[in-house]
Computed example of a mutant assay.
Amino acid sequence: MATVLGPAGHGKAETRVVRVTRDGATHHLKDLNVSIALAGDLEQTYLTGDNTGVLPTDTMKNTVYAFAKEHGIPSAEAFALRLARHFVTSQPSVRRASVRVEEYAWERITADSRSAARGGAGHSFVRQGRQVRVCRVTDDGQRYQVLSGLSGLTVLNSTDSEFRGYPRDRYTTLAEASDRVLATEVNALWRYGWTGEGDGPEPAWDAVHARATQDLLEAFAETYSHSLQQTLYRMGAQVIENNPSVDEVRLSLPNKHHFLVDLEPFGLKNDNEVYFAADRPYGLIEGTVLREGAEAGIPEE
């Protein structure tokens, strides 16, 4: 039976790099997790073991560290763009480079007067929650595709949410809810219209990220929700409405179910006050919101 090689590639996953920029006694911190995937004319290494076109994954790791030193990390997106373009322009066998970045946020610890006098205020940090900033850059040698976003942003509305009117069958036990807790962990990616093909300057990555994050939070908080699907659409739509550089928003929202606890055995009434927070199984609501008329992006492998 004949066989052929399908889509294939190689890369270096999860290179952790921390870049400290020293501005006198005040330091600035960037903490990234970088994954690189390369594809192109690599068939022979799979078919015959000829490694002529195979850039070692260790070299990819070293490039991350060298670029952090030589070019700094102005933003996750800018760093990923530089890496992606480097690999497709420096390696003849590489036709496509994808770079994914997770950024872990650190907050400067506020110093009291004594530690400030010792100079400790400028270099002490604390990790912020579970929220992670993410980006994915794809470069096919002609144009970029930049996806920015976040993961692990946990939000909760204690009211202004219901779920009613759904179909029922013999296996349905869920009771309709006219006032429920709505909680989810926001995992979002937004795609920029900017591709580097003469369509203006690069977006202001940090500013757009901050505004889009705020839009997601505001839309979640201000939408009276008849379903998590409705809330998802409103969240994506608000990001696009308020950020002209964004053409597409992809959202994955696991429903963090909160069930009312039955307190009747204890002679108590539970008036939407005491809940059991279930971690699994959970509903998973996913969807994409597009700017009308926007061009399709580069397919992700």
Rank of each mutant, 00 (worst) to 15 (best):
N62S: 11
E70M: 03
R96T: 13
T63S: 05
T173S: 05
V246E: 04
P244Q: 02
P7W: 01
C135N: 14
L38C: 03
V186G: 01
V146T: 10
L153G: 06
L81Q: 02
L42M: 06
A117S: 14
V261C: 14
E286W: 00
Y275V: 07
G129F: 05
L47K: 15
H123P: 04
A105R: 06
L284C: 01
Q44L: 10
F163K: 09
E222R: 04
S227N: 09
N243A: 10
A177R: 10
N33P: 04
A219S: 05
P201L: 03
P7G: 15
A296R: 11
E107Y: 13
I73L: 03
H86V: 05
G119D: 08
Y275F: 15
T159F: 12
N242E: 08
T154P: 13
R96N: 11
E14G: 10
T57A: 11
R19D: 08
V54Q: 01
T231M: 01
A37F: 09
V208S: 10
S227E: 08
S227P: 06
V18M: 12
F163A: 00
A66N: 09
V99S: 11
R191W: 03
V246Y: 11
N242W: 11
N255R: 06
D112N: 13
S75E: 04
V239D: 02
G141V: 04
S90G: 05
R191G: 10
H226S: 07
V20I: 12
R130F: 00
G120K: 09
R133G: 09
L83D: 03
T173N: 10
V239S: 03
T26P: 00
W205P: 07
G198K: 03
M235G: 02
S178P: 03
R95L: 11
R130P: 15
Q214A: 09
H28T: 08
L153M: 14
T15A: 08
T173C: 01
N187P: 00
V155R: 07
V274Y: 03
D58F: 02
L153Y: 04
G283N: 02
I240G: 00
G193L: 03
V137C: 03
L232K: 09
E43C: 07
T110W: 11
A277H: 14
I240E: 00
Q214L: 14
G196S: 10
Q230N: 07
A221P: 08
P203N: 13
T45K: 01
F259A: 06
A97K: 04
G165C: 10
S227L: 09
T195P: 06
A221H: 11
L268S: 05
E107C: 08
R133C: 06
R143H: 14
R100V: 05
E77D: 13
G120V: 10
H10P: 14
D160V: 05
I240W: 00
Q142G: 15
K256S: 09
A294S: 12
P299V: 11
G141T: 08
V34Y: 04
G9Y: 04
R191Q: 14
T213A: 13
L174I: 05
A277N: 13
L216G: 07
D179G: 09
R95G: 14
L232H: 05
T195C: 14
W106N: 10
V99F: 15
